[in-house]
Design a protein around this nucleic acid. Structure first.
Lengths: 236, 236
DNA sequence: CAGTGGTCTAGACCACCGA
DNA sequence: CGGTGGTCTAGACCACTGG
């Protein structure tokens, strides 16, 4: 039975997907029930169930117990924003990534940082400021505070070899994160270090990461607008 | 057996998740095999399989046939960027959404637009320019070209009642999309319509949507940087 | 009520991996 | 080779929906 290279449930999924993509079935239309698929494909109900359940997980169809399976309103096409190591990202483009280190210190947390990291005001925190360059051109100004509890070795890292993101990913596997992206003008220091004029707009990403029980780090990432864009793909 | 409110496979998932979140099992560590879970929880293999398979789909664990299930390197935490109707978004914040219509026309496609929509240069395209306001304050300048083949009725829409995004979602269910986000300074018209100075940075999202066989629309969405940010959450 | 999906079981065969 | 995951089946009981 299962000598097929393509599993039965995948065939069913593909078949349903096709009907939806071609517009044979429009949003709100019913999709054949599990028992209908059993007969049509000569499969067991568990197999039909798996196909429809996975399509529902992808958001292509909606299932309501007792009512049936319907083609979903195709609203929530979504893309993945992924937290990646910038070194890896640059290397993938076949370019050279280098880092300029501006600051690597231990400080007392100010109120804002303490709050973000879930520490008392004045608690010890690690602070790094780096500039990331792609083929020698600055592309990211990274101002980051790190919770010592999450990455005790942080300050001993050679940041010319290992980026903060990579160190954190390796030592404090992240379980949660939030971000916000805004357009801002750089302050004087940021403009100077990025080699741009004060009036040149930048993408600023504020990111807070959590690893297990600890808030691990808060970072302010400044990208020169003219040299960087966030791009992505949505797939149904 | 299944009188439990929480399904068995969910209990197994929660149990595994907990061990990973608490750090009992670190990235690379083996997760109990399906047969181990069968014994431990007194469940059948299909149930254990489902639990682990779904965790793998979420990216929490990695499964290799013949080798076993291991805790994944928690790198690719990802978030969902969702295409939403701006009216809905504003309404959800409990605010009032209004629209100012600047242009609703039919034009011949210039080379760039034709290319994006997959049409011949000079083909007829719909063009709308709107300003979206939240409680009377401009928050988005929307310059959009639409492929007539994907939404023939587009121009007949009352854009004070139905946003372009909503019309398109309803009439041309989207199957694919790509976007890029940059920081830019607004041009003179955009600045005037958004009520900001020329030097104030903006988030600009270029978005191209595909519906079935047709490229449906390309849009340039300009957000005043000081009034708008894109925010999101990553979840493992 | 009949039909639907939600869950579960106890088997089964297979392909793959590592020792 | 034994253990692993990948898939599949033929049944089962349940909760829910709709007419």
């Amino acid at each position: 039975m299962q000598k097929d290279v393509v599993p039965a449930y995948e065939q069913v999924k593909a078949w349903v997907r096709q009907h939806i993509a071609r517009g044979d079935w429009k949003p709100g239309d019913p999709v054949p029930s599990e028992s209908a698929l059993m007969e049509q494909f000569g499969i067991s109900r568990m197999t039909a169930n798996r196909a429809l359940r996975e399509l529902a997980a992808e958001g292509l169809v909606t299932r309501v117990q007792g009512s049936g399976t319907k083609v979903a309103q195709l609203h929530r096409i979504s893309s993945q924003l992924v937290i990646r190591d910038i070194h890896e990202e640059v290397a993938e483009r076949g370019h050279v990534h280098t880092t300029r280190i501006l600051e690597v210190t231990e400080e007392k947390a100010g109120p804002a940082v303490a709050e973000s990291l879930g520490l008392r005001k004045g608690a010890r925190v690690f602070h790094t400021i780096l500039v990331h360059m792609e083929n020698g051109v600055p592309i990211q100004y990274e101002d980051r505070y790190v919770n010592p509890a999450a990455a005790p070795d942080y300050l001993n890292t050679d940041f010319t070899q290992t980026s903060p993101t990579l160190h954190l990913l390796q030592h404090a596997p992240l379980t949660e994160a939030s971000y916000s992206i805004e357009a801002c003008l750089p302050n004087e220091v940021e403009a100077r270090e990025l080699g741009i004029r004060r009036g040149e707009p930048c993408l600023v990403m504020m990111r807070r990461t959590v690893s297990g029980a600890h808030a691990a780090s808060v970072a302010r990432l400044v990208y020169p607008g003219a040299r960087y864009s966030i791009a992505g793909q949505f797939q149904a």
